[in-house]
Amino acid sequence: MSIWTKLETLDRRWVYLMVSIAVIVPFIIEAKFPISITPEARKLFEAVEAVPDSSNVFVVFDYYASTTAECEPMSRAAVRHFFRKDCKVITLTNIPLGGPSMSERVTREVALEYDKEYGVDFVNLGFKYGYVAVLSGMGTSIESIFPTDNSGTPLSELPLMDSVYNYDDIEFIFEVADNATAEFWVSIVNAQYGVPIGCGTTAVSAPKYYSFVQSGQFVGLLGGMKGAAEYELMMDQPDLAVRGMAVQSLVHLLIIGFVVLGNLGYFLGPRKKKRSAF
């Protein structure tokens, strides 16, 4: 059996083991490389900077717990950025499984850093079912869609909500999404009500959303952990995403190595293997 044949029939668990090592090693041996900022991320940061201080803004937690590693650094950075500008942050989610819990936890943790008070400086509206109903309905009246906040307190009892009736009272929407909800925010809220939207999304969704950046429907875009790291750096508050980038580097190089090795085996190995490669 030639070396190429051996490589072609390698037990998948060896691949898994190598990936595991590549993820663990950078935590032990730190290697630092500069992280560049893409124009899309910079645009988003500048758009948030341009939001007048003390404005009412939405931070939308449209992601599942499965993508916390990519999305949470973005939502955390967004809430930090708005609190830094003394903006009134209203959070909500279209994700039934865990969305309300994560928005509550993240916002409360960040609020502690900035000494912000619930009901006055921030409110968590929580979850309601149905993108079309929720996003369209809030254009007429937020209170009709969310009669209470996530904890069951009527909106009329929350001072922050006194000045917020519908999208006319919202200056900016920071949407963090790991699914197609971002498209609904674009097509319903931005198109019909004209509220500027910035989007942070998973790496899987990012290539699609370049189209919305070019059309101006998104003011900017953060793609995956790299996007989150870029935002953390622009905020001058490096956190989880920046730490994760060093690890990301090594695993990417390993996977590129796998692609090269797999192709070498494909071209240099026995012909019959070529036909059964897929």
């Binding site: 990936v19 935590f27 993508t67 590693a69 790496a203 899987v204 290539p207 995956g224 989880l240 730490r243």
Partner: peptide, 27 residues
């Protein structure tokens, strides 16, 4: 070209999720 870019980004996304868990286990 677009699907290639998508694949590159998908790799990044999946690896990020693994990093999140390993970060918890180690730190």
């Amino acid at each position: 070209i677009s699907f290639g870019a998508h694949f590159g980004y998908t790799v990044m996304g999946r690896v990020s999720l693994l990093i999140g868990r390993v970060q918890f286990l180690i730190e």
